[in-house]
Design a protein around this nucleic acid. Structure first.
Length: 564
DNA sequence: GCCGTTTTCGGCCCGACTGTTTTCAGTCG
């Protein structure tokens, strides 16, 4: 390592502040103190001015949650990548103890206790202790927790090597940029595989390197997290097709080709000794008598049979979205104000912004009591007066908790004051299937409900969906005219794309919602669009592809119906 | 550690569940 360190980015500094906070928790510091570090990190990330500029201008303390002490730490972390306080804390616990806290059921107290009593300093240590039944014998632990930990370690193992779509994309495009400079004969590097198919979780990076100089192959080697296919331009279509997959899709295509006397390989397409053109995938599908199949649909789920009969639908694209619904602000657990969020949305070219802060039961997320709702509505009215004539509107929404019995979180007269309502489950995940299903059906049967939020509650690679009869819920949404959310947060992407077609068959509209907690989160929309494409969704199926006039009418119609 | 003052220290987001206890601490959302 060289002495001169590049300034650490805001993201890097935020990660280090979070580490300080976590280590303070482990050390038993006041939870208020560690929480300050977490919120400073969050607000630093949400701050619109570049960190280097804020530091240079001495304006760190203008960031909420940053005072004298944390400002000094941010400066040192930014300039050197560390801080004496952090180094001191790092001496108390090995890094592996932080990993323990990622296991559900293990918080800072329990993680610290396990390190101190059993010297558990990694997930491997933890697993060994559980298998040896040592954990259950510890004070404060028991057989149930031990079993739950083993289960979640197994869950992690199943998902080993997988990353969420946003990380997958960053990785693939960064490696592709890096490779491009590697050799002068490289013409292009195209991410394929899971990334190109728009999968919600991605395995190793697949790249197709386009180069016509075959002697240069040796400069590129595949590895465990990296698979490279080298292809000349003339057979790029074939190479891309094979590298994109899935195996199921490709093997069905090959069988189809075989039946037509065509041999299809990653290097070529031939009929007997005749080379057929395959520089694009379109040429290959055409030669096989198929309409072109978009990469997102190539999952071996009947798409080839459908492509024999008709062209694939014009899948939704980013530009089809006209507005944004379901976002948070400082009125609950968001980091930006309502006007910052609305203005950022308008600048992205959208026609409307639907604010949906948490409802009163979500106390942990700063859920709004009725007085706070009134204040937000007054502010929204004021902003809308300012937007008059600018073809932009703020809609007064709310993300209402679905209570245990399926009721929404405000009395009916209050519900009536909102323009629209996203109803979501945030508690009681462990209800049995029948109760959970009945609860959600009850919520979507409420005439005030406009959209069902994150229908299954899954957190990708972190938490399984709650046990619910999705078919029955979608059927109820269809019957009651409730749109089903495709939550575009890359941690969720819920409703799962495998259910999208069924939802449409049952008469549901879909809504692609970013669930943004700051202005940067508005860009989540792109993951939602990719996911919807994977589900075969078209713009006409999506609520927020309606223009401003259209959605005003939709909300108004539902409100009239709710008033009966 | 920050914040906002009833300007110098007390409050900070809190209620419910879960598994462990044997009356509650820790975790979670």
């Amino acid at each position: 390592m060289s002495e001169s360190v590049l300034p650490v980015s805001a993201q890097g500094v935020a990660a280090l502040l979070n580490e300080i906070g976590q280590r303070m928790e482990l050390g038993g510091e006041s939870p208020f103190k560690s929480r300050t570090y977490f919120s400073a990190a969050e607000n630093l990330l949400a701050h619109s001015v570049p960190l280097a500029q804020v530091v240079a201008q001495g304006k760190l303390k203008s960031i909420s949650g940053v005072g004298e002490g944390i400002a000094e730490k941010i400066i040192k972390l930014h300039k050197t990548g560390t801080h004496p306080t952090l180094e001191f804390l790092r001496e108390q616990f090995p890094a592996g103890v932080l990993d323990l806290m990622k296991i559900p059921g293990l918080g800072p107290k329990k993680a610290a206790a396990l390190y101190q009593s059993l010297k558990i300093a990694s997930l491997a240590d933890l697993e060994a202790a559980c298998l040896a039944e040592k954990l259950a014998a510890e004070k404060g632990f028991g057989a149930k927790l031990q079993a739950k930990i083993l289960e979640s370690l197994a869950f992690q193992k199943r998902n080993e090597g997988l990353v969420k779509i946003n990380v997958g994309h960053t990785r693939a495009f960064a490696s592709s940029r890096a490779l491009r400079g590697r050799h002068p004969s490289i013409k292009d590097v195209i991410p394929a595989g899971d990334v190109r198919r728009g999968c919600e979780v991605c395995g190793p990076v697949d790249l197709v390197v386009v180069m016509d100089d075959e002697t240069a192959d040796a400069v590129l080697e595949s590895s465990a997290e990296f698979r490279v296919t080298i292809s000349p331009s003339k057979s790029l279509g074939a190479a891309l097709l094979f590298a994109t997959g899935t195996d199921g899709h490709v093997s069905t295509l090959r069988a189809l080709a075989h039946a037509k006397g065509i041999e299809l390989t990653p290097e070529s397409m031939r009929r007997g000794t005749d080379e057929l053109p395959c520089s694009t995938e379109a040429e290959i599908y055409a030669a096989l008598g198929l309409h072109f199949i978009e990469p997102e649909l190539r999952e071996g789920r009947g798409e080839i049979e459908r492509a024999k009969l008709s062209a694939c639908p014009r899948l939704i694209e980013d530009k089809d979205l006209r507005g944004i619904l379901h976002c948070h602000t400082v009125f609950s657990d968001g980091a930006n104000t309502l006007d910052e969020m609305a203005e950022a949305t308008r600048k992205l070219g959208f026609e409307y912004f639907g604010v949906c802060d948490h409802s009163q039961s979500a106390a942990y997320a700063g859920g709004m009591r009725i007085e706070k709702v009134r204040a937000q509505h007054a502010l929204a009215d004021e902003l809308n007066r300012g937007y008059h004539g600018k073809r932009f509107r703020v809609f007064k929404g709310v993300e209402s908790d679905i209570l245990e019995d399926g009721a929404l979180d405000y009395p009916a007269e209050q519900l009536d004051a909102f323009d629209f309502i996203v109803a979501s489950v945030h508690s009681r995940f462990q209800l049995d299937r029948a109760a959970q299903t009945a609860r959600i059906i009850n919520a979507v049967s409420n005439p005030h409900t406009t959209i069902l939020g994150h229908a299954t509650g899954r957190l990708l690679l972190q938490r399984e969906p709650y046990d619910v009869d999705v078919e029955a819920v979608l059927q109820a949404c269809g019957e009651h005219g409730v749109a089903v959310e495709i939550n575009a947060d890359p941690h969720r992407l819920d409703l799962d794309w495998r259910w999208h077609q069924r939802a449409l068959e049952l008469g549901c509209m879909l809504a692609i919602n970013p669930d943004a907690h700051d202005t940067a989160g508005l860009l989540n929309q792109k993951w939602g669009v990719i996911n919807a494409r994977k589900g075969g969704v078209e713009a006409k199926h999506v609520l927020n592809c309606m223009d401003l006039a259209g959605i005003e009418k939709h909300f108004e119609k539902r409100k009239q119906a709710a008033r009966g």
